[in-house]
Amino acid sequence: MPRPMSIADRSSSSPAENPSPLTGRNWFERLLVGFIDNHTPKCREVIKLLSQSMEVKLPITTRIKLRLHYLICAWCQRYEEQLRALRKIASSFPERVDDCCPETLPDSSKERLKQALRERTPE
């Protein structure tokens, strides 16, 4: 059952929980991190938005929120870089088909195709 996220909830670090983002910070950083945490979307939502941003330009407020979120979350920032890398990889894929696709049309199919084509070829 997902609990509402708050800094207090994450203060202990049992195996199922992340260490608190507030550990080892001074009062100002705590305030800042707490603020960003409360006012930007959560990571699960962020990665959805990031995928969306590959399709449409997000509203400026959303983009600012994402930027702020990156200040406290290196994973989401990395996720964005990787989405861009993935796009680049995918677009290079057609040129590299030979590298990964050794399949050939079976000879029997070739013969069948030739036969079928001969019947259809106008003289």
Partner: peptide, 15 residues
């Protein structure tokens, strides 16, 4: 994810 945030051990790694 833990509470909608990345689990620090499983989040995206540097490629």
């Amino acid at each position: 994810f833990i509470d909608q945030g990345w689990n620090h051990d499983l989040g995206p790694a540097q490629w």
